[in-house]
Amino acid sequence: MATVKLSFSPAPVHVRTARLVGVAVARRAGVREDLLDEVRLAIGEACTRAVALHRQYGLSDPVLVEMSDSGAYAVRVVDRAPIEAGIGLAALPPDELAKESLSEDALTTGVGFALLAGFVEDLQVRPVEEGIGTEVRMVWPVGR
Protein backbone atom coordinates (compact mmCIF):
# COMPACT_ATOMS: atom_id res chain seq x y z
CA MET A 1 0.00 0.00 0.00
CA ALA A 2 1.23 3.45 -0.93
CA THR A 3 0.00 6.68 0.54
CA VAL A 4 0.62 10.16 -0.77
CA LYS A 5 -0.40 13.14 1.33
CA LEU A 6 -0.65 16.68 0.11
CA SER A 7 -1.48 19.60 2.30
CA PHE A 8 -1.96 23.06 0.84
CA SER A 9 -2.88 26.59 1.93
CA PRO A 10 -6.53 27.25 1.06
CA ALA A 11 -5.86 29.28 -2.09
CA PRO A 12 -7.46 28.64 -5.50
CA VAL A 13 -4.07 28.58 -7.22
CA HIS A 14 -3.14 25.32 -5.45
CA VAL A 15 -6.22 23.38 -6.55
CA ARG A 16 -4.60 22.71 -9.91
CA THR A 17 -1.56 21.25 -8.16
CA ALA A 18 -3.84 18.92 -6.18
CA ARG A 19 -5.52 17.79 -9.39
CA LEU A 20 -2.19 17.08 -11.07
CA VAL A 21 -0.88 15.11 -8.10
CA GLY A 22 -4.18 13.24 -7.73
CA VAL A 23 -4.16 12.12 -11.36
CA ALA A 24 -0.48 11.19 -11.28
CA VAL A 25 -1.03 8.96 -8.25
CA ALA A 26 -4.20 7.49 -9.81
CA ARG A 27 -2.31 6.57 -12.96
CA ARG A 28 0.47 5.03 -10.91
CA ALA A 29 -2.10 3.10 -8.83
CA GLY A 30 -3.57 1.56 -11.98
CA VAL A 31 -6.83 3.49 -12.40
CA ARG A 32 -8.08 2.98 -15.96
CA GLU A 33 -6.94 5.64 -18.39
CA ASP A 34 -10.52 6.51 -19.41
CA LEU A 35 -11.42 7.31 -15.79
CA LEU A 36 -8.60 9.80 -15.27
CA ASP A 37 -10.55 12.81 -16.56
CA GLU A 38 -13.22 12.06 -13.99
CA VAL A 39 -10.64 11.61 -11.24
CA ARG A 40 -9.14 14.98 -12.17
CA LEU A 41 -12.51 16.72 -12.14
CA ALA A 42 -13.70 15.11 -8.90
CA ILE A 43 -10.51 15.87 -6.96
CA GLY A 44 -10.68 19.42 -8.30
CA GLU A 45 -14.29 19.83 -7.17
CA ALA A 46 -13.60 18.42 -3.71
CA CYS A 47 -10.60 20.72 -3.26
CA THR A 48 -12.47 23.74 -4.65
CA ARG A 49 -15.23 23.09 -2.13
CA ALA A 50 -12.73 22.83 0.73
CA VAL A 51 -10.93 26.03 -0.31
CA ALA A 52 -14.25 27.88 -0.56
CA LEU A 53 -15.26 26.75 2.93
CA HIS A 54 -11.92 27.75 4.46
CA ARG A 55 -12.18 31.17 2.86
CA GLN A 56 -15.80 31.58 3.90
CA TYR A 57 -14.87 30.90 7.52
CA GLY A 58 -11.55 32.76 7.41
CA LEU A 59 -9.55 29.63 8.14
CA SER A 60 -5.87 29.58 7.22
CA ASP A 61 -5.52 25.87 8.06
CA PRO A 62 -4.32 23.78 5.16
CA VAL A 63 -6.60 21.54 3.13
CA LEU A 64 -5.48 17.93 3.28
CA VAL A 65 -5.59 15.52 0.36
CA GLU A 66 -4.69 11.92 1.07
CA MET A 67 -4.40 9.36 -1.68
CA SER A 68 -3.95 5.65 -1.11
CA ASP A 69 -4.02 2.60 -3.34
CA SER A 70 -4.78 -0.28 -1.02
CA GLY A 71 -6.97 -2.45 -3.26
CA ALA A 72 -8.66 0.54 -4.84
CA TYR A 73 -7.67 4.15 -5.38
CA ALA A 74 -9.07 6.14 -2.45
CA VAL A 75 -8.82 9.90 -2.10
CA ARG A 76 -9.79 11.87 1.00
CA VAL A 77 -10.12 15.63 0.88
CA VAL A 78 -10.38 17.08 4.37
CA ASP A 79 -11.50 20.57 5.31
CA ARG A 80 -11.65 22.20 8.75
CA ALA A 81 -14.86 24.19 8.39
CA PRO A 82 -17.76 23.91 10.86
CA ILE A 83 -19.85 20.90 10.07
CA GLU A 84 -23.16 22.65 9.39
CA ALA A 85 -21.61 24.26 6.34
CA GLY A 86 -20.16 21.16 4.86
CA ILE A 87 -22.77 18.52 4.29
CA GLY A 88 -25.63 19.27 2.01
CA LEU A 89 -25.88 17.57 -1.32
CA ALA A 90 -28.03 19.96 -3.26
CA ALA A 91 -29.05 18.77 -6.70
CA LEU A 92 -30.53 21.70 -8.52
CA PRO A 93 -33.18 21.08 -11.18
CA PRO A 94 -32.61 22.82 -14.54
CA ASP A 95 -35.33 25.44 -14.05
CA GLU A 96 -33.67 26.48 -10.77
CA LEU A 97 -30.23 26.76 -12.38
CA ALA A 98 -31.11 29.68 -14.61
CA LYS A 99 -33.18 31.55 -12.03
CA GLU A 100 -32.26 35.14 -11.48
CA SER A 101 -32.47 34.76 -7.70
CA LEU A 102 -29.88 31.98 -7.48
CA SER A 103 -26.48 33.47 -6.64
CA GLU A 104 -23.41 32.41 -8.57
CA ASP A 105 -21.87 30.98 -5.39
CA ALA A 106 -24.95 28.88 -4.65
CA LEU A 107 -25.07 27.70 -8.22
CA THR A 108 -21.40 26.78 -8.21
CA THR A 109 -21.79 24.82 -4.97
CA GLY A 110 -24.81 22.92 -6.30
CA VAL A 111 -23.14 22.20 -9.62
CA GLY A 112 -19.96 21.11 -7.82
CA PHE A 113 -21.89 18.55 -5.81
CA ALA A 114 -23.74 17.38 -8.92
CA LEU A 115 -20.38 16.77 -10.59
CA LEU A 116 -19.01 14.88 -7.59
CA ALA A 117 -22.11 12.72 -7.30
CA GLY A 118 -22.26 12.21 -11.06
CA PHE A 119 -18.64 11.26 -11.58
CA VAL A 120 -17.84 9.32 -8.42
CA GLU A 121 -19.74 6.10 -7.90
CA ASP A 122 -18.25 5.52 -4.48
CA LEU A 123 -18.59 8.90 -2.75
CA GLN A 124 -19.00 9.75 0.93
CA VAL A 125 -19.20 13.14 2.60
CA ARG A 126 -18.95 12.83 6.35
CA PRO A 127 -17.66 14.55 9.48
CA VAL A 128 -13.98 13.99 10.26
CA GLU A 129 -13.36 11.56 13.09
CA GLU A 130 -11.33 14.02 15.13
CA GLY A 131 -11.88 17.74 15.48
CA ILE A 132 -13.90 20.03 13.24
CA GLY A 133 -14.45 19.53 9.55
CA THR A 134 -15.70 17.21 6.87
CA GLU A 135 -14.05 14.77 4.57
CA VAL A 136 -15.00 13.95 1.01
CA ARG A 137 -13.99 10.37 0.33
CA MET A 138 -13.87 9.07 -3.21
CA VAL A 139 -12.91 5.61 -4.37
CA TRP A 140 -12.15 4.33 -7.86
CA PRO A 141 -11.41 0.77 -8.90
CA VAL A 142 -7.94 -0.10 -10.11
CA GLY A 143 -7.94 -2.25 -13.22
CA ARG A 144 -5.28 -4.87 -13.69
Binding site: L41, E45, V111
Partner: peptide, 9 residues
Protein backbone atom coordinates in the same frame (compact mmCIF):
# COMPACT_ATOMS: atom_id res chain seq x y z
CA UNK B 1 -10.67 21.46 -18.16
CA UNK B 2 -13.88 23.06 -16.90
CA UNK B 3 -15.12 22.93 -13.32
CA UNK B 4 -18.15 24.16 -11.36
CA UNK B 5 -16.64 27.62 -10.93
CA UNK B 6 -16.33 28.01 -14.68
CA UNK B 7 -19.88 26.77 -15.17
CA UNK B 8 -21.07 29.31 -12.60
CA UNK B 9 -19.41 32.11 -14.56
Amino acid sequence: FLDSTGLGV
